[in-house]
Design a protein around this nucleic acid. Structure first.
Lengths: 250, 250
DNA sequence: CGGAGTTTTGACAATATTCAAATATAGTGG
DNA sequence: CCACTATATTTGAATATTGTCAAAACTCCG
């Protein structure tokens, strides 16, 4: 049996984003805020705008990205329900956020947020923990971009997406991919053609079965883990010497 | 004319590290701590160790890195005098730190640090600001690793090193490189051969003059900026709405 | 001066990109 | 419901960039 619980913890952390599947204190701050809607393709905010608000994603998916001088786009993360975005920002947003699917969010002013955190010391550890998780996620992405080849990147991505789904299990390994191949490519530092070829390759190896553009079924989970190059990845806190013991390869 | 001042600010922020050239409140916490010495090559702490301390670098240089499953090393940042490391960490260090040159550091227990920050609200904004800067630096590194080619990476690196030197100026553009070519390669996601070739190429173009293994003189600063691909980079706070009008990627 | 370790250079191979075309999918209006 | 269009994805062939392996040149220290 795989130590999926710990492994999972490391992977599920969204990049440049604060996650929380279970209702957290932080999320409670958003509860009374009205829900706003964004149609697919609409922007929540732009890189460089004054960062006046934080947002909680209630439903839907967003991409977080930067555009560099020559027009290339770098996606630094994806958001989904439960994620909070904006805690780590400077006075201006470091990136743009755009809805991938129809999305609902709640908005909290930065000022209100900072006041609440200032008042309630209980909130502070949570804020710090989320910042730390964000930082850990950024480090993982740097490792991916520094050393992994195309196949490893795509496998890592699929695992990350799988583990983000709270209802996932090894037997029911359906991965939803609301984003386009171009989004995936821009996230992994590859071209869409390379992403597509790797998906085909994984399908040919019998590791996954495609179920339409935005859905994939993982058939050989263990193989996927092996190919991701994160074999002996650990979660950064829970690990003692555990974790290696139970890890099997297929 | 390029907006080098702002550009500078974005670049000088060390990755995964807290910087501060002028004496800060945070740094004051370390003032009464005794100085410890590390010889070149010695480790300050290891990835996975219980993160019991924060450190201020008094003098010298360190590399911050992770080793991944197949033995490859990823350097996520370099430290120099004035940097503080440990604020953003979880309970266990996310990476190892190793002295590049002979180094002196001051140590502060995590517990003491957290107590001080808890007591003194004035310290908190500084801690947050440093975390935000760290995050911004991580984002910049992701952009570099996602989209930049070998030449752009090396140029970006040289500029970053140049701007880290408090005494730098455009006319006196001497860049110290205390780290080895392998360190640079592992930081930029390249091989030492590629780094070396790019340095040679830049020297042939008359952009820089090599002055021994660990020192380079920048002759054509503007060219270097152009080649870095960070042309219209901005500092993350000062910029207005420039740049995005016609951006749309297909 | 010698020698270990580092860096540079060269030749070749591997991997991912580019460009082009074919195919699949989703959305729209009849 | 179907055909049609626009868009997204896949596939193929050629190219480019970077990596690998091997050897030469250079530096730094003792």
């Amino acid at each position: 049996m795989l130590q999926t619980t710990n492994f999972h913890h490391a992977l599920e952390i969204a990049n440049a984003v604060l996650l929380g599947s279970e209702q957290s204190c932080l999320q409670a701050l958003f509860n009374k805020q009205p829900v706003e809607r964004l149609a697919a393709g609409e922007s929540l905010f732009f890189e460089g705008d004054a960062a006046k608000h934080l947002f909680e994603v209630v439903e839907g998916n967003l991409r977080i990205f930067r555009i560099i001088s020559d027009g290339r786009r770098v996606i630094t993360g994806f958001l989904q329900a439960g994620d909070i975005v904006g805690v780590s920002l400077k006075n201006h947003y470091l990136y743009s956020a755009e809805a991938i699917t129809d999305t609902r969010v709640r908005r909290l002013s930065r000022k209100a947020f900072e006041a609440e955190v200032g008042n309630s010391p209980a909130l502070r550890p949570e804020v710090f923990a989320r910042l730390r998780d964000e930082m850990a996620a950024a480090q993982n992405q740097m490792v991916l971009l520094s050393c992994k080849n195309a196949e490893e990147r795509v496998c890592s991505f699929l695992l990350k997406q799988l583990h983000r789904d709270p209802g996932h299990s090894r037997s029911n390994a359906i991965v939803e991919l609301p984003m386009t191949r171009l989004d995936i490519a821009d996230y992994l530092g590859l071209t869409i053609e390379t992403v597509s070829r790797m998906m085909t390759k994984l399908a040919n190896k019998g590791i996954l079965v495609s179920a339409g553009r935005h859905c994939v079924r993982i058939v050989k989970y263990g193989m996927l883990v092996q190919l991701s190059g994160d074999d002996d990845e650990y979660d950064g806190d829970e690990r003692g010497l555990l974790a290696y013991a139970g890890r099997q390869r297929q």
